[in-house]
Amino acid sequence: MKQSMYTVTSNRPLARDVYGMKLAGDTSAITAPGQFVNIRLDGLFLRRPLSVCDWEADSLTLIYKVVGQGTARLSAMMPGEVLDLLTGLGNGYDMSVSGQAPLLLGGGVGVPPLYGLCRRLVAEGKRPIAVLGFNSREDVFYAEEFAALGVPVTVTTADGSEGVPGFVTDALPEAGDYTHFYTCGPEPMLRAVYRATVTDGQFSFEERMGCGFGACMGCSCHTVTGNKRICKEGPVLRKGEILWQK
């Protein structure tokens, strides 16, 4: 983990209520795709967590949906403004077990961390397959960016206005066509993915956070291997350790 200051270099709408922000600054603490940052915002007490979509040696990209005060404030930021971030939070995805044809299943603003993962898998010579789920065509983002990595991309929309009608689980490749899966999205989607997939895989979870770095016990969950902090031993859990609550 590292705390430092980042300068906004761009901040633009990508889809309905969804923005992409690029920041310049020290990314040395980021060690794996699927990790997140925790952002301090003027006037708000707690930081707000966002997944790292992608990063380079001195810049990072975040994609966020405006759902409340913090994300609304973020969306109003202009290039040149400065943000205080904690970076390198959480475990991130384990790429070493991907196999040759990993499946990436993203839902809504769960799509961003899969992009950084996808780019790194491609760089390692893997052949990922992406299935990206949204509510409606106005919500779709980053399908072209995945395609530009040379990856087969299927878009699904719940209302059928673009791509395959339905959910990501309605557009899964045949069993045997993927070697492992990586997923991030709303919890109902994660549950559906858990049931519909035939290989081992990794799930990125969300929980309301106090600190984001393991100090407050605000984000705990039960797993097969004991209690874990989503911010520290997560947000990524292996399929075999998940214990669904309720």
Partner: peptide, 23 residues
């Protein structure tokens, strides 16, 4: 102790609420 169910945290003006429940 596992503590209370989540969400356990709420943001407030100049402060926060926690219901960690002594995990």
């Amino acid at each position: 102790r596992f503590g209370n169910p989540t969400p356990r945290i709420a943001d407030c003006t100049a402060g926060m609420i926690n219901s960690v429940g002594l995990q």
